[in-house]
């Protein structure tokens, strides 16, 4: 782990643990974080796992894709979609989700979190 001020790169898993163009759920203490490997674009994203619409721990099981240029994830429950970049809800009326930075180094995937969260 590399300390950066009060933030930390948390080791989530290995690249091969995450399906291409899909997500997994990462356990961080009592928190659940959805981690996505957007292989088509060579990008990684992390967000909260809970969909704010009905408070379901499900975003990691959602389909990812794009709306225009914006990368997004669709909750499997009611297909609310959220930007993977900003967390904003793209399908209307639900509050935004939290997003986190992701780093891949030597086949390991890290998520940038507050030090007291890990």
């Amino acid at each position: 782990m590399v300390e950066t001020m009060n933030k930390t790169w948390f080791l989530a898993c290995q690249v091969q643990d995450v399906p291409e163009n899909g997500g997994v759920c990462v356990k961080v203490k009592d928190q659940q974080i959805a981690l996505f490997h957007f292989a088509r674009r060579g990008e990684w994203y992390a967000t909260q796992n809970e969909c704010p619409h009905r408070q379901q721990m499900a975003l990691s099981r959602g389909m990812i894709g794009s709306q225009g240029e914006e990368p997004k994830v669709a909750c499997p429950f009611h297909k609310k979609t959220f930007s993977l970049k900003t967390g904003a809800c793209l399908s209307g009326d639900v509050e935004a989700i939290k997003t986190y930075s992701v780093m891949v180094k030597d086949e390991s995937v890290y998520i940038f979190l507050d030090s007291d969260e890990v």
Binding site: N21, F38, R40, R41, G62, M63, I64, G65, S66, Q67, G68, P71, K72, A74, K79, T81
Partner: peptide, 19 residues
């Protein structure tokens, strides 16, 4: 799906075209 998207689509897909 990826082959189909590369050959006949554009962008990165979505929850409508994927399933």
């Amino acid at each position: 799906y990826d082959e189909v998207l590369s050959a006949h689509g554009h962008g990165d897909g979505c929850e409508v075209c994927k399933p």
